[in-house]
Write a protein that binds this DNA or RNA. Structure first.
Lengths: 343, 343
DNA sequence: GGCCATTTTGAAAACGATTACAGTCCAAGC
DNA sequence: GCTTGGACTGTAATCGTTTTCAAAATGGCC
């Protein structure tokens, strides 16, 4: 309030002096209070209070070789989908006092950094990666690094696999979607996929294919790219089909929006003429017109699970190269974009 | 690839040894290459390459007393509004090689931490706060801390002021909204506010009041809270008014959605019977039915500006207590929720 | 070749914590 | 009274950098 403000921050030395003990005692008071006699402990705590001491994290990290920080690497901070996962990660981490460092993959690479940079320079001791599309070189380096076990993928994952990851039950979600449409009486169900080579595209397509087999339906694919435009274009293709499909399963909600908007422009009504199911359940889906029936990914839970997996990995040291993959359940949310055939 | 993976990371000592120079030379090669002869520089660079050396950030921070890290404190990571600001901050920071540490205000306080904790323990050397509603005690401590100049508020700011901040031109935005409605012929324009005691509520209300004065209109307020529900309730009040207002300016887009939905339920059509203007321009507004006319805040730019202000503040040291406030322009986005009176 | 000014260099002292190790103290046991 | 053991303490080394300061190398010039 008077002088202390301009003076430099108190160090553990200052506290020791003030409490008439050694620095070791101060340190122990903080990290293992029970190993210190009550008398001194009180003195130390008082001294800490009066000096306004805060442990210097840089010094602490240097000495202990741990930063108590987790890096989250995501494709885009502006994408609400990832924000929710981030939120889950923050929740999952909060109990263990880990700080959260975030970086966008794009910026990181254009800065000449690498996934491992943050781990190698000890800024973080673990990382959660929400981007399956890392450069192969980067991935190679990761896999053969001793730090590999401190990295967990979430949502997406590298196509070649071999790394711990947490993901939604994409395949099962697709199955749920198709079964739902089938139960409504639909027999001509097509699928608008995501972009080629994407793991989410592949798993969801696979689920669609499986469900079609199971139900004795023909599987028909239209390539999309998770974008609105992709849906619009798919609509243009689909209206030309003869006979026209009565239901469409889209690999993302956004694509479903595009599709519906496209169909509407052709005078086709959803769900009266065609039923549509999406994937993700973003905020927007509930309020779309019509409200979208979709497969919900619980992004917060997914983030939490990723955080937990990371923490476990770094505790149970010798978990080894073994691939640890966790699936988070998805749920079909019924709204107004699907209806019984011919209703 | 073989052994190096299991060995502990290379230190500057290792590099020095490998290049047959002193550690000082290695350090200089990295921080001031020109001060080192070409011969040694090459040797050092080769050594760095071959050892896979990465500077240890903890040691560096300890020595230099800088962490090159900025803390962003926000009310909720899950809120897309803030994600966009965060994105802007990341952009604004990327050029200066600062890492980004994020924390939610709620979690932080429940962990017993404080805004200043991260700065005092040197985890970050600056902070951007997206939450105007910090506990007063916290704010007090901030203001009289020598670290005060390393903190910048963005979007919101403490009601008592006295701190650097970057914000949208809230007042002006409200004026734009009212003028637009007036230009369409509306003379009975009411305002659904945000929650009491919020700085955004106050500035937007003030803008509304000013514009009404300027145009010779009567100012009428309904209290909302930025939420959907608030809009719905306001609708119930407004339909009872006699004569019924022909236009409503809402302090947030979400409130506008609630209001429109409420009005519709009473058989009142937007924009045919009543024109509505929102504030924020969130993603959703463009796709609402009807697409919402609203005051757009450019969140990414706002974030960038905050980052820039913070960086400037920490450079131009003796900027002092002077309050630095920056306004980011807003823009009226015309869509379909407003129409000429009686059209 | 000798001298001086200018680069370049290296040795060593921080930075602020944690922790191995070796004491000190005191009560209990003989 | 002397040992022994256990509970606390303190000393000092260490983590990996940066940076000061002084020494060494270089080069220009006579």
């Amino acid at each position: 309030m008077t002088e202390a403000n301009v003076k430099k921050p108190a160090t553990i030395q200052d506290v020791a002096r003030c409490a008439n003990v050694s620095v070791a005692t101060v340190s122990r008071t903080l990290s293992a209070p029970d190993s210190v006699s009550e008398t001194r402990r009180d003195a130390v705590l008082r001294a800490i209070e009066s000096t306004g001491y805060r442990v210097n994290r840089a010094a602490q990290s240097l000495r202990t070789q741990r930063s108590n920080t987790v890096l989250v690497l995501l494709p885009s901070l502006a994408n609400p989908f990832f924000s929710h996962v981030l939120k889950g990660i923050a929740d999952g981490l909060s109990a263990s006092k880990q700080a959260l460092l975030v970086a966008e993959t794009g910026q990181m690479f254009s800065a000449g950094d690498d996934l491992l940079t943050y781990l190698e320079d000890q800024r973080a001791d673990g990382a959660i990666v929400l981007d399956g599309a890392l450069p192969t070189a980067s991935l190679q380096r990761l896999k053969q690094s001793r730090l590999a076990s401190n990295v967990v993928f979430a949502c997406e994952w590298p196509a070649r696999g071999g790394v711990p990851s947490v993901r939604s039950a994409n395949e099962h979600g697709a199955v749920l979607a198709v079964r739902h449409l089938h139960a409504l009486g639909h027999r001509n169900i097509v699928h608008v996929t995501g972009p080629i080579g994407n793991v989410l595209t592949d798993t969801r397509s696979e689920g669609y294919r499986l469900a079609c087999n199971e139900l004795g339906l023909r599987a028909t694919f239209f390539q999309g790219d998770f974008s609105l435009q992709g849906g619009v274009e798919a609509a243009a293709q689909i209206v030309k089909l003869e006979p026209r499909p009565t239901a469409v399963f889209c690999a993302s909600d956004v694509t479903a929006f595009g599709l519906i908007s496209g169909l509407t422009r052709f005078g086709i009504s959803v769900p009266n003429d065609v039923s549509v199911v999406g994937f993700d359940d973003i905020e927007y889906s509930e309020h779309f017109v019509p409200p979208l029936t979709t497969v919900r990914q619980d992004r917060v839970t997914l983030g939490k699970a990723a955080a937990r997996l990371l923490l476990e990995n770094s505790k149970g040291q010798v978990l080894g190269l073994e691939e640890r993959v966790q699936e988070v359940p998805v749920e079909l949310v019924l709204r107004k974009s699907t209806a019984p055939l011919g209703a």
